[in-house]
Design a protein around this nucleic acid. Structure first.
Lengths: 191, 191
DNA sequence: AAATACGCTTGACATTTATCAAGCCCTTAT
DNA sequence: ATAAGGGCTTGATAAATGTCAAGCGTATTT
């Protein structure tokens, strides 16, 4: 079974079998059941996670106990709190499994080694950041200055599968509105 | 006069004088007067800009003519529409000088060459993306699910100089609120 | 020096969205 | 099989924010 991770690296930087082997050797698998946590608020994020199977999401908690979804991660995506990962400061994010997951993890030291040892891994990571940054900027564009309805419609256009796979209350949180508001928007749009 | 760009590369990846020379040779300087555009909506973004002096900002325009500020760029920062730069699709962003600017530009082909030719440039760019991504994610955290007042206070904490240097109507747009709302928030906070 | 434009503020009012409370369906746990 | 909880919807009301209109000071232009 060719792992998604290796396929992802292969596609983006056409690494050789040899290089892929080396990369793979730095990762360790981990399984997570639905509702289990990969990272909890207050802990330092010590590893990057690649999603082989399943789905996760990250969120912060505000002073009033409200949850704010930062990111979803489906099969073939990465997830972590990069801020905590690089600064070593305690994270204020939680990363939780939306369903049963199979992950490949790499910790800080191994990530550094791999960057130095395999130039194509560095290129892969650069491209990853590049795409992640672009996607995030598009999210900011959607978020700032649009009505709740417009934000929802953009999400539907750009990431229809998110709307299908994820509970609506989390989508509401991702969009920065309450579940009630999202429910009403959907009722409107249905017409 | 040691340019900021070279200093930036030097600091992040400790490049040799030789490497810096090579990097520098790929960039071309450009001056922009206040209110001039580096990129206009509808054009393809063909180059990345490093800000040696001055300040710029990027924004999109919505169907009702409203402006939404996406990013500010001060001395030592980069600015571009990466989405357009990499996809070659026409940009829906404008990039405009907030004040007289001196930039160093690199176009797509030269950027690719440099990435391939100078490994430390690739590392530099990777770190750039990394930091840009982290900063943007923090912005998303601030944007989603906070009141206008809370967003403004976070901006004050994290980037006080933005609030000092940039007209309030642009800050309002950056935060996703109207200038009137921002004005009232500031009045409140003043107490 | 006068005229103009820009940035900011304020007030009155409209609209959007949040909050609180209740109920329903469906899944999961006991 | 029953109970419990999660996810979603709906209604009534409150709070936050937007819109429109006006005015004022300062910088910029002519």
């Amino acid at each position: 079974m060719p792992e998604l991770l290796l396929k992802s690296i292969q596609e983006k930087v056409s690494a050789t079998g040899q290089e892929l082997q080396v990369c793979r050797s730095y990762f360790t698998p981990k399984k997570l059941k639905k509702r289990q946590f990969l990272l909890q608020e207050g802990d330092v994020c010590n590893r990057l996670a690649f999603v082989e199977k399943g789905a996760l999401y990250s969120y912060s908690t505000d002073s009033k106990g409200g949850q704010h979804v930062i990111q979803f991660a489906f099969e073939g995506w990465w997830i972590a709190d990069l801020y905590s990962f690089f600064t070593l400061e305690p994270s204020n994010l939680n990363i939780e499994a939306l369903e049963d997951c199979e992950l490949l993890l790499i910790d800080r030291e191994q990530h550094q080694h791999l960057l130095a040892e395999v130039p194509k891994y560095e290129t892969y990571i650069r491209l990853l950041y590049q795409n992640a940054y672009i996607a995030l900027q598009r999210r900011v564009e959607s978020t700032v200055g649009l009505t709740a309805e417009a934000k929802y419609n953009r999400l539907l256009e750009q990431y229809p599968y998110i709307v299908q796979q994820v509970p609506l209350n989390l989508i509401a949180s991702y969009l920065g509105v309450t579940p009630e508001t999202l429910s009403r928007i959907r009722k409107q749009s249905a017409k």
